[in-house]
């Protein structure tokens, strides 16, 4: 099967500060692809690079066979990729309804309303909070809203940057279960950056281990989890 996303030899960073060095990866359709690594290894930067939010010095990124290297984020969003940042992933000052409308910004009005109704069916807790400002939602509810916003454009690929950060363990587990459902029920390909490496590798199909902006491992997620050295060395996993 042809990969849905191909990253080839990418060097990227912010301004003159290079963070990623010669990073390559291929993501198969409907996979959960996990990116793990120590703090500051460039995991979030890799997601941002795929979404056009950093400066790419070298290399190429193709999505569904289409070159997206150097495209602005609002154009990449239209190709079918959704990106959920680690924090500030909803508009706190806008109501839940306005947040959903903004997520449907690029859609024609009729289709936008239809898609908003669909995500409200999927996440009924948002229905009761439509008129509330997003700043009044709990951390878990905000993640659900962010997910709902991403789903409105029916993306083929979703990039999650630490969706469970600062959430209680029970809530974090619920969010990760929801991500698995997105793949299983809607067939969406997932790229997941997650602090809880063990949990992420357990749910993932493929994995990439980044250290200092360089790829240290690329292959099966379960294999990395059981790797005799890498997990213990870089991810704090017990041998």
């Amino acid at each position: 099967m042809a990969p849905i996303l191909e990253v080839k030899g990418v060097d990227a960073g912010y301004g003159k500060l290079q963070i990623l060095f010669n990073v390559s990866m291929e993501v198969e359709p409907k996979d959960i692809f996990v990116i793990v690594g120590p703090n500051g290894s460039g995991k979030s930067t890799l997601l941002k690079t795929i979404f056009g939010l950093t400066r790419i010095y070298k290399g190429s990124i193709r999505f569904n066979g289409e070159e997206i290297t150097g495209k602005p984020p609002h154009d990449i969003a239209k190709t079918g990729i959704a990106y959920l940042p680690q924090t500030d992933n909803v508009f706190a000052q806008l109501t839940v309804a306005e947040n959903l409308k903004m997520a449907a910004y690029t859609l024609p009005p009729d289709l936008a309303q239809e898609r908003i109704s669909e995500v409200l069916e999927r996440f009924p807790l948002l229905k009761a909070r439509l008129k509330d400002k997003a700043m009044t939602l709990s951390g878990g509810q905000r993640q659900i809203l962010a997910m709902a916003m991403s789903l409105i454009r029916k993306p083929k690929l979703m990039l999650f940057d630490e969706p469970t950060a600062a959430l209680a363990p029970k809530l974090a587990a619920e969010i990760l279960d929801e991500i698995i459902k997105l793949r299983d029920e809607l067939g969406i390909t997932i790229i997941l950056v997650e602090q809880n490496a063990k949990k992420a590798l357990q749910m993932g199909d493929k994995a990439l281990l980044l250290v200092g902006g360089r790829v240290m491992y690329r292959g099966g997620a379960k294999e990395l989890l059981e790797h005799p050295e890498l997990g213990a060395l870089y991810l704090g996993l017990k041998k």
Binding site: H74, K101, M102, Y105
Partner: peptide, 24 residues
Amino acid sequence: TKFGTAMRAAIENPQLAETLGINV
């Protein structure tokens, strides 16, 4: 208006607005 709401969104969080396809 849709554009007015987009304006508020882009002012509050330009990066998120950009990820949703709003031309900031």
